[in-house]
Amino acid sequence: MKNRIIALGATLGVAASLFAATLSVAQDTGTETSAPLKPAAEFQSITDAKQRSWALFEEAGKVIQHPRCVNCHPATDRPLQTMAMHKHQPPVTRGDGGMGMPGMTCNTCHGQANVEVIGQAETLKSIPGHPSWHLAPIEMAWEGKSLGDICRQIKDPERNGGKTLAEITEHMAHDSLVGWGWQPGAGREPVPGSQAVFGELIAAWVESGAACE
């Protein structure tokens, strides 16, 4: 699923490869409804605490590794876009505090709330928005990382903004920018489940020892 730009130059199969895909930032097609997310209670049957803990985090990982979340936890200074996770267009850059560069800060386009695009391209139904729209700091990058690596990173105060596990739980369960993932606006697939179920999974993961493998 990783974005890649290829230079076409093959002498054979021209017609076959030529028109394969030229979309750049067209929004997701298909579903605008959340995929299911299992509640924490369904994991009670796993008796081994460590196994249960990791299973809980793997379930939560369906949210964490969803493009909706990873797109703003990029590994470079360029955020990503769409389910295809291609680089953001226009080409914006992290800037101070992940708020973009002077002259084109995030809020040049991203307002206090999602904005429906009316009467323009049907492949661009809305512009996302939130009062504190910004990129996650580079030490919190998730792009390209395994779920285990992301898990260890989330637990590491050096790389999680100095948070305790309790604070992590609170952040995941109640932060409204995290919550945007479930209300991403028209034309965007939300992350699975609900923030409440996700918050419970994280809480149960912490309670069960916060295993990362």
Binding site: M1, N3, R4, I5, I6, A7, L8, G9, A10, T11, V14, S17, L18, A20, A21, T22, L23, S24, A26, T82, A84, H86
Partner: peptide, 21 residues
């Protein structure tokens, strides 16, 4: 220049396709 750099002649345009799948 591209052909001399990469060995790949450009037979179709555009040169860059953003593959999103």
């Amino acid at each position: 220049a591209w052909r001399r750099l990469t060995g790949s002649p450009v037979r179709t345009l555009p040169i860059v396709n953003v593959v999103t799948s």
